[in-house]
């Protein structure tokens, strides 16, 4: 019974639920502020995402007359719920263990696909032509960034699995445990290409410039989420901020989970710092220094560079054995 209560608490309060939402929104606020300073603007206050969220939840949600009602409602809920579940799978070294379940990395991989699928469902259910274009773009985008991600995950699973005597381990907690004992993978030269591939995967998955193609504001007016307002839009925003925590947290768990000490709060702060640095590198700087690429260009890019980088790591790992 305590296990069950613990699970619910993990899901709703910490590290999922309230905590993750607050952290995600806060990180987004910082991201906006830094981006603004980089563009020599003043920028909104750091708490702006919270204000936006409260404002959106108090607004009416308008459903287009031609939309498929159930699917239109289902999409944001699906995306949000999927990300809520995903956050609980992310271990924070020295703070939170994650699930001691041998396949949580695979579950996470599937859960990570949910936001894109939710956007696709929402886009096509909204019956707007922009939503339809957004649908197809989201799908192509997903296909392009999922492959390098998969190769990176397999590489790390193999690396840890081979080192611990098995073949491959798809357990995040084991991967973290391995790194706590043998040093972070960040400092392993064979993993550097994989790390680079993962860094390139982050802006694609987060849908920021230059890979915000499915939601390109000036091209297809936000695409799938064009018709969303009020609560639906708020859920999508929450989904994005949670996704940020999941993606950044996953990167930290995979490459640099090392805690700072034994103190719970210090470790939590350390995790936040790592998230912040990673976000600035992989999201804020990238999105302020580039322009949006076209779908075909993005697809070619992802098949070419990150996939090759990830494969190099895979080969190096296998050779090292």
């Amino acid at each position: 019974m305590t296990n069950f209560v613990q699970l619910i608490l993990n899901l709703l309060i910490f590290p999922g639920g309230l905590f993750a939402v607050a952290l995600g929104l806060f990180l987004m606020g910082i991201d906006r502020k830094i981006a603004a300073r980089l563009q020599r603007r003043v920028g909104p206050p750091v708490y702006q995402p919270f204000i936006d969220l409260v404002k959106l939840t108090r607004k009416e949600m308008v459903v287009p007359g031609t939309a498929h009602l159930q699917a239109f409602w289902l999409a944001p809920l699906l995306g949000f719920a999927g990300m809520m579940a995903a956050v609980t799978l992310i271990p924070i070294a020295g703070v939170y263990q994650g699930f001691k379940y041998s396949g949580d990395l695979l579950v996470l991989l599937y859960l990570l696909a949910l936001p894109a699928i939710a956007l696709m469902i929402g886009g096509s259910a909204s019956s707007s032509p922009f939503g339809a274009v957004g649908f197809s773009r989201e799908m192509v985008m997903m296909m392009s960034y999922e492959l390098p991600l998969l190769v990176v995950l397999v590489t790390i699973a193999l690396k840890v699995g081979l080192a611990t005597g098995g073949i491959a381990t798809f357990s995040l907690s084991e991967i973290v445990q391995f790194q706590l004992e043998n040093g972070a993978l960040l400092f392993d030269y064979t993993m550097l290409p994989a790390l680079l591939a993962f860094l390139v995967f982050i802006p694609g998955n987060m849908g920021v410039v230059p890979f915000d193609i499915p939601e390109a504001e000036t091209e297809i007016v936000e695409g799938p989420i064009l018709e969303y307002s009020g609560t639906g839009l708020a859920l999508f925003k929450l989904m994005t901020s949670l996704k940020m925590i999941v993606v950044l947290g996953l990167a930290i768990a995979l490459f640099f989970p090392t805690p700072l000490g034994k103190n719970f709060l210090v470790n939590l702060l350390w995790f936040f710092l790592k998230c912040l640095v990673l976000m600035v590198i992989a999201i804020t700087i990238v999105r302020t220094s580039t322009g949006r690429v076209r779908m075909d260009q993005a697809f070619k890019f992802y098949l070419r560079y990150p996939t090759v980088l990830a494969l190099i790591s895979l080969v190096l790992t296998l050779l090292q054995r």
Binding site: L38, Q39, R40, R41, V209, P210, D212, A216, E217, T218, E219, T288, S289, T290, G291, R292
Partner: peptide, 16 residues
């Protein structure tokens, strides 16, 4: 033009 290709930093720079 910069704004439309999503290059908002360039847009801000030009406007400046």
């Amino acid at each position: 033009l910069a704004h439309i290709i999503g290059f908002d930093s360039l847009f801000m720079h030009v406007m400046e």
